[in-house]
């Protein structure tokens, strides 16, 4: 099962490599990974999506928690949560018909065209990973995709539940 783990860790050089290393060393999957400092600049928040049965996820959570640089770990998929991923897609847009169709498609998915040249568009889209996948599928049948950049998943628990130090 796909899980989203949120990790609060010291914003120190090497802290990220310990987490990434742990995953490869113990044979766990990393599907996506995002990391950045929090409102407290001494802390980073890392979000990792991984797959595994309950037992594997329990081990991953415990192993990550054991790292000396890590303050807290939470599996936000345990409860109600919001997840988002940001994607930018560069597509070929060199005819008027194609440009109209791409704009329409982007609007349907509530995307934004953020860069325009005579031959290309860059469309920005925010949503769940599934929505981003669906947009790519829809684009593929209409236009030539030149490149795709995705941020990886980040997310928060809904309501009062939080991951703070």
């Amino acid at each position: 099962m796909r899980r989203i783990l949120s990790v609060l860790l010291e914003n120190e050089p090497g802290a990220l490599s310990r987490i990434v290393g742990l995953f490869s060393q113990r044979g766990y999957n990393i599907e996506t990974l995002t990391v950045a400092p929090t409102d407290d600049p001494t802390l980073s928040r890392l979000t990792v999506t991984t797959v595994g049965d309950d037992r594997v996820i329990e081990q991953i959570t415990k192993q990550v928690n054991k790292l000396v640089d890590v303050l807290k770990v939470s599996d936000i998929t345990d409860g109600d949560h919001i997840e988002r991923e940001l994607m930018m897609v560069k597509v070929k847009a060199d005819t008027t018909a194609l440009r109209d169709e791409l704009k329409r498609l982007s609007d349907i998915f509530r995307g934004l065209v953020v860069d325009v040249t005579p031959t290309t568009y860059v469309i920005q889209l925010v949503g769940t990973s599934a929505k981003l996948d669906a947009f790519i599928e829809a684009l593929r049948s209409e236009a030539e995709i030149i490149e795709v950049a995705r941020s990886g998943v980040t997310g928060l628990s809904r309501g009062e539940k939080s991951l703070r130090f």
């Binding site: 050089p13 090497g14 490599s17 310990r18 290393g21 060393q25 000396v68 640089d69």
Partner: peptide, 13 residues
């Protein structure tokens, strides 16, 4: 620090 990472409890530079 990189070489020893998988076999230490922790490390410092």
């Amino acid at each position: 620090v990189g070489c020893s990472r998988p076999v230490v409890k922790h490390s410092f530079l």
